[in-house]
Amino acid sequence: MNLVILAAGKNTRLDTGIPKSLVTLNGETLMSRHIRIFKRHGVNKFCIISGYGADKLEVALPKLKEAHDADITILHNERFDLENGFSVFRAKEWVENNGMSDFFLTMGDHVFDPEFVGEFVRKSNVLENTLQLAVDMPGESNKHIDIDDVTKVLVDDVDFIKSISKTIPEYNRYDTGLFRLKAEIFDVFQKSFDQEEYTISESVSKLIADKQAKSVLVEGYTWNDVDNPDDLRSTKDLMDQKRL
């Protein structure tokens, strides 16, 4: 299994001088945590998409490889000023060169309970749709989430995604930032770029009408998006509580 990790963002809301994926919590960087957890659940190839602070990720690469005995590639997205869908597209050559039919995708600044990852890997094992997104039900386990910033998802009664955005008025799930994608997703991204749409959510919307965007409910576990100082503090608190 294979994982693409997006680590290209400009860190406008949490600029510590390094990519957010290299922020250290409880003695481990967020990037190292991702590689450790996903490797435990069967991922053996990793592709990191760099952008802002790319030189610092390159410096960290040998230590990551040594610490995890992992196959890790870094690809640089020179247009890291664009939205996250363009960063995913940068992995196209890696996916094609390695003959991959599908891959997992997550963000370098997200943090997951290891069992959250394990459940999504198990539930998404048979990939019948172009895109599967791990979603969570709003509730006690995720009440720390920034409701104004989280991407919201509306799904139907058989888990197909009906709409997705940070601003949709009706929703019943949260986007957790963990996907499993078929390789043909890159064709969808290209269609979005042709219309000057660069977010992952905009490409997901193009799959909805064809019933190719499915949600996978993973609930009862903790996850967080370390996007700003408040998120960083809440993540530290969750780790202190042994919830991450």
Rank of each mutant, 00 (worst) to 15 (best):
L82G: 00
K10L: 14
F179L: 12
K162V: 09
F38R: 04
A134F: 08
K236I: 14
V23Y: 13
K143A: 13
A70F: 05
V218N: 08
D148R: 15
N224I: 09
I18G: 00
L22Q: 04
R173P: 03
G9C: 12
E119N: 07
R33E: 05
K211I: 08
T167A: 02
D55M: 11
S21D: 06
H41V: 11
D15E: 03
L244C: 05
V23Q: 14
V117Q: 02
L154W: 03
N84A: 10
D102L: 08
V155S: 01
L3G: 00
V158H: 06
K211F: 10
R122M: 14
I185Q: 04
L105I: 00
K56E: 01
R79H: 09
V126F: 15
F103H: 01
S32H: 01
Q132V: 14
T222F: 15
H41K: 14
G27D: 05
A67L: 11
E28W: 10
F120T: 05
V226Y: 04
D175V: 10
W94K: 06
G27A: 04
N97Q: 11
E78K: 15
N228C: 10
V135R: 03
M137C: 12
D157F: 13
K214D: 02
G139K: 09
K63E: 09
T151S: 10
Q190K: 15
L244W: 08
F189N: 00
G220E: 07
T24K: 13
A213M: 03
D69M: 15
T151Q: 09
D156V: 06
F38V: 01
A7Q: 08
K63A: 11
E140C: 12
I208Q: 02
D175Q: 13
L57A: 03
S205L: 14
L82V: 05
D71V: 08
L181G: 02
L127Y: 04
V150N: 04
T12F: 13
E28A: 10
L82A: 06
T235H: 11
A7K: 06
K39N: 07
G42Q: 05
D102W: 08
N129E: 15
M100N: 05
